[in-house]
Structures are given as C-alpha cells and as structure tokens.
Amino acid sequence: MATKAGGTGRFTQDEKRRDSDHVSFLKHRSFRWLWIALLLSGAAIAGYLMIDQQPRPNGGTWYGYTLGTIGVLLILWLSLLGVRKRRINPGAWSLKAWTSAHVYLGLSLIVIGTLHTGFQIGWNVHTLAYVLMLLVIATGIYGVAVYATLPASLSANRKEMTRAQMLDALTAIDRQLESAAQPLGREDADLVIAAMNQDPFSLGVIGRLTGNFYGSCRTHYALTELEDDEPGMERVYPLLEKRLAQLDQIRGQLRIRALLEVWLFVHIPLTIALIAALTAHVISVFYYW
C-alpha cells in the first residue's frame, strides 16, 4: 500500500472536484459557453453588416455558405448530446459541460440561422428547415426554463420518499382500508372498492400535465359521497383522506416529472425532422448550383 499521491494522476483532479464544482449547467465555468456563443453571434452579425454581399445578403453568397456550414455542423454536433448522455465511458468529459454548451450554442443558432437566410423567407424546403430549427430551439428554451425552476418543487413534493416508497405507502393504506371497510353496507363498500381498484397511473396526458384529475378520481368521489359521521366511518373516512393525500403526492410527482420531460417528446422528433429537412435543403442547394 505504499502508494504515490494520486497514483493514477487523480489526486489533483479529485481535489479540484472536491473543492466543489458546485454550480449549475447555466453558470458552468463562469458562463464560458455563454461567452463563446455571444462571441460567435457577435462575429456573425458584424460580418453580416460589414461584408458587402453581392447581389444581396443570401444563403448563396460565400458568407452565406460559411454561416450555413457553421450552422449545419452545430446542429449535427448538438444532436449528438443524446448519444453522449448514454455513453459515459470512455473519456474524461462532463455532461454538465456538454449541456451548457448545448444550451448556449443552440441559442446562437437563432442568430446564425437567421443571418444565413438573409431574411428571405418563403414557402419552400429551405424555410421549412429554418422554421423547424426555430421550433427545436423554442422547445429547448422551454426545457431550460423548467430545468431551472421545477427541480425544487420536485424535491419538496418528494418529502424524502422514493417512488417505490410512495407506492408502498399507498398499498399499506389500502390494506388498512380493506379491513376497515368490512362493516360497511353494500353501497358504501362499493365506493371504497372502486377507489381502491383505480390505477393511480391512469390519468391521461392532460390530467398528468395539469394535475387536475379530481373529475375522475374515485377516492375523491368516495370522500364527497360518504359522510364522516356515519356509523363505521370512524376509520374509513380518515383512511380515505390519507389515501387522497398519498395519491396527491404521487400525482404531483408524476405531474412535475411530466412537465420536465414532455418537451423532449417534441424536441427530439423535431430535431430528427430538422435533420431530414436540412438534408433536403443542402442537397437541393447543391443540385441547383
């Protein structure tokens, strides 16, 4: 065990990490990628203004081609984030740095892409690619916004429980409900059984995103129908209330997770569509050269 400090050269690296690289992807390395993106955009704008493009600013001038090439390379590289995040080894890179670059360079595409069009918009495949790109960026902006604002509420809603524990808690309540509801009459018992048999996950897309499912929630319905002062209700009613509270937590979790993820279901298909449109755009441009 007589080892050298950082035998694998990791000690210094580890110390730096332990010194706490505790900043978000937006602030990563004092906004390094924001500055790079601003620089890139600034340079693109300056070039657009200063270079005399003949006959007029257009994707087909040499400057237009330059911007287009930068744009296309950026788009392809940005889309590789999906592979990167699933392939952690090998390589000493950090996904946070990639996310940071993805966000800021992605935003810089608004400037680069727009300048590349030379503000010539029409009903054609070229504009289709441009519009798709803007849509991808717009969904991305939504993603950044929810990433920055929602995690705290996700954490607060969790109350130190794991998803499995939330479901276990619900099962435990149901077990108690089942025995407590034994003395109830047919009608009341049916309400309780209906509540217990409802799948907590069958909420529908709208319900999941808005968190409003009291319309179809049978536990909620049972609570409105039953009276807490009826005989036999001393245990059942509070248990149903507990069940509703537990359901609310689970649904809260589902809702926030859905809000955090839903944009990806648009962002990624749009990206694929964008790459397809881009391919068509590039091929057609060279075909009619």
Binding site: D14, R17, D21, F25, H28, G91, K96
Partner: peptide
C-alpha cells in the same frame, strides 16, 4: 478516466 461517472453524467450539475 475522468473520475466518478455519477458526477460526470449529471446534465445539470446537481450531483457533486
């Protein structure tokens, strides 16, 4: 190479 994967794989910088 690069150290703990949990930290490297965090997209937002939450894991430290």
């Amino acid at each position: 190479d690069g150290g703990p994967a949990c930290v490297r794989a965090c997209p937002t910088g939450a894991a430290i």
